[in-house]
């Protein structure tokens, strides 16, 4: 959260507090995805090989870390889950076998199921005409309720 004082904007919450560190969230992801995020040792190979990383505000390895520490708000406000193209490059290269793409799918699912995502896929008639069915169906499957 940014606040302003005397022309200087500063962050009001820099610290991760003990009470925030709840593991239920990582467990929920694990239930949906089958990925054990606690195995992560933060090598970053997922992010290094991610084709979409440049467009993400938080890298995949950081998503995993945030999930370990129960920082759901930050994940929820991130564009990363919605940028991920589920190409699986991260999952297949993870040295510890964590299914990262699957975990990110779980984040999407949690958002969509909670209906707290504003990311509804509204396609215009023009777009629907332009796009091949394979693109429309997969987009609906991934990023819309």
């Amino acid at each position: 959260m940014l606040k302003e004082k005397g022309g200087l904007s500063y962050n009001t919450k820099m610290e991760i507090e003990t009470m925030d560190i709840k593991s239920e969230f990582a467990e929920r992801i694990s239930e949906i995805s089958g990925a054990n995020l606690f195995k992560c040792y933060q090598c970053g190979k997922c992010s290094a090989g991610c084709p979409m990383a440049e467009s993400m505000d938080i890298l995949p390895n950081q998503i995993v870390r945030l999930a370990q520490l129960g920082q759901w708000d930050e994940i929820q406000n991130s564009n990363t889950p919605w940028i991920c193209a589920a190409c699986l490059a991260c999952s297949v290269r993870c040295p510890r076998g964590i299914q990262i793409a699957e975990a990110i799918e779980a984040v999407r699912q949690i958002c969509l199921r909670n209906r707290n995502s504003e990311r509804r896929l509204g396609l215009s008639d023009e777009q629907i005409k332009e796009l091949p069915p394979i693109a429309i169906i997969s987009a609906y499957r991934k990023i819309a309720e």
Partner: peptide
């Protein structure tokens, strides 16, 4: 074998 962006083509 680098992803083309897949279904993001609809949204982004």
């Amino acid at each position: 074998a680098e992803c083309c962006g897949s279904y993001q083509t609809a949204q982004q």
